[in-house]
């Protein structure tokens, strides 16, 4: 039997009908709400590709059960900004061309945006440590660091 769960996603209240209330939030965001920001990378909390903001905190939606979310506000990459009006972090990634395949970039931007919101002009080692558990296989790290520093300089 399905349960109806209300979620606050990107500023809108939406309902999803799910068979298992403990289904990871990632599957609801992608399959029930058709969002493409958070991505499936490992489903184990190890890579960060699925990162969203939950009340401003960067969490990995692949291991966040729906039943734990409650009325906390979820923000995904789409909610951060659009190609027409990108968030400063997104604009910085465009300016630095900080993408190769781009599959990890959701996690990088969401983690970095949450980190900058609570850390003023961080040093290079601090940025590296903040992103230390976000994996990129293409080796785009140097551009990602430059993009985060660029965004930090603006906020």
């Amino acid at each position: 039997m399905t349960t109806s769960i209300a979620l606050n996603v990107n500023g809108r209240t939406v309902r999803v009908m799910v068979d298992d209330p403990n289904m990871p939030l990632l599957y609801a965001l992608r399959n029930d709400l058709g969002l493409r920001g958070p991505r499936f990378g490992c489903g184990l909390g190890q890579c960060g590709a699925c990162t969203v903001h939950m009340d401003g905190k960067a969490v990995r939606s692949c291991i966040t059960p729906l039943s734990l979310v409650g009325d906390r506000s979820i923000v995904t990459l789409e909610g951060l900004g659009t190609p027409e009006k990108p968030h400063p972090m997104q604009q910085a990634f465009i300016d630095e061309q900080a993408v190769q395949c781009g599959y990890c970039i959701n996690g990088m931007i969401m983690e970095a945006a949450a980190f900058l919101a609570k850390t003023r002009n961080p040093s290079d080692p601090q940025i590296r440590e903040a992103l230390a558990s976000n994996l990129c296989r293409c080796g785009t790290h140097l551009r990602i660091l430059r993009a985060v520093k660029r965004a930090a300089a603006q906020t």
């Binding site: 493409r36 990459l77 190609p83 465009i94 993408v99 781009g102 959701n106 931007i109």
Partner: peptide, 9 residues
Amino acid sequence: DIPGKVTGQ
């Protein structure tokens, strides 16, 4: 492809 990739489009 980069603008679309950094905004989830």
